[in-house]
Simulated scan of single mutants.
Amino acid sequence: MSLMLPSESPSARSVVGVADDVFAALRGDAGRLPRATSVVLVVIDGLGAIGLRAHAGHARALTAQMSKRDVATSVFPSTTASALTSILTGAWPGEHGLMGYRVVDPDRGILVNQLTGWESEGLDPATWQMVPTVFERAAANGHGAFAVGLAAYAQSGFTRATLRGAVFSAEASAADRVLSAYTLAEQNPGSLVYCYLPEVDKAGHKHGMASAEWLAALEDVDAALAVRVPSGIGVLVTSDHGMIDVPERRQIVLDESHLDGIRHVGGEPRMIHAYLERPADAEAVIARWRSDLEGLADIASRDEAIAAGLFGPRIADAAAARVGDLLVIPRGNGAVYDGTAADQRGRGMVGQHGGLTPEERQVPLVGLGAFAR
């Protein structure tokens, strides 16, 4: 097998542990975080630790509180559907079941989008996401549970799968979302409040991290987090994943000859789930793809990926059945596209994620307020 996980320190923190950290802080247990009256968990979608440090001048409030140790490792795939769910459940993708951006529903044999396709593709938020959320756990232990985000997300299937148990409120701007979260935490002692900031991710996808739009989004989020945290409130700022820019010359487009024997191409350009017409042919197809993409991408079978622990140390049978027969992970800043697909809009996306690079998987984990060092 040509695919191996990057080496990581045994002491490296994972976003999977964030849920347990905030619960310990609410209970006053000895742990990574000090005791707090209430906790606000802020997720800046798409902001990697490497990208943040490289643009520290545009995020002075946040980076002023960030030491070299204030980082965590995201899960694989390093994409919102998988990683944000891991933060909000404290479970690995192999446990909660969201194994990437698009996967096959094994019961129906159709490709489903785990971020935006819940309603149109018939996914049940109560069962497809297979573990309790951090908010359900909070409520069961007598803590208030709140979430602050954009109005457009209030009733989405992904929200109902990952924010189960939270009272949702909507605010339009990043600054208003942060202030609302702080107010909820202050007015409801002992509560857990989640605040979602997607602006950086959206700007990165559309314009890239080298753009004025991305820098403006980073500055806007940083300004929102520069306000005073109410006394006794612990704030933990993290992200689901980082991002890299994919130039047009690094787009790898697969034609019909490459896709012979492939029934569905799922995942996303930085981490493809490929599903075979005949799974019995997996060995031959994998050998062909390794030859076709030699030096450009790592290829692994489903069994190899699971054995390597890519989806976490444990994997439920239902989650394993959603994984592609083979996985394709581009090296460097490349991206792989299905050239025969009718919808090619994804090829205009500049900033991307999903793979194994440090830029995609290292995220900030910064304490403010009662959690400041």
Rank of each mutant, 00 (worst) to 15 (best):
L52A: 10
A320K: 14
A91P: 05
G142M: 13
V131Y: 14
Y153A: 12
V336F: 01
A30D: 15
D20P: 06
D338H: 02
T73E: 12
D201E: 10
V103C: 00
A139T: 14
D124N: 14
V221K: 06
D124V: 09
R27I: 05
D255V: 10
R278L: 09
A161R: 04
D105C: 03
A166T: 02
M130T: 11
A226S: 15
D245L: 08
E256I: 12
A305N: 06
A175S: 15
R249S: 15
L327E: 12
R290N: 13
L365S: 10
P93I: 05
V366Q: 04
S2H: 04
Q362S: 08
A210L: 12
G312L: 05
M99S: 01
G157S: 10
G242E: 03
S120N: 10
R290M: 14
V237K: 04
G346Y: 09
S169Q: 13
G48E: 04
A145F: 09
A223Y: 09
H143S: 10
G334Y: 10
I299V: 15
V336K: 00
H353S: 07
R164D: 02
A320L: 05
A54K: 15
A370L: 03
M66I: 05
F23V: 10
S9E: 07
D240V: 04
F23T: 08
M66T: 08
G48I: 13
G97E: 13
V323Q: 00
I110M: 03
G157H: 06
V42M: 12
G355P: 00
A30M: 09
L365N: 08
R108E: 04
L179N: 10
W128G: 03
M130G: 12
D298P: 02
S67D: 11
H353K: 00
L3G: 06
A12C: 05
A91F: 09
I329P: 01
D240M: 03
A64P: 07
S239E: 07
E294Q: 12
E219N: 03
D222R: 07
S120W: 08
W214H: 14
M349R: 14
I110T: 15
V134A: 15
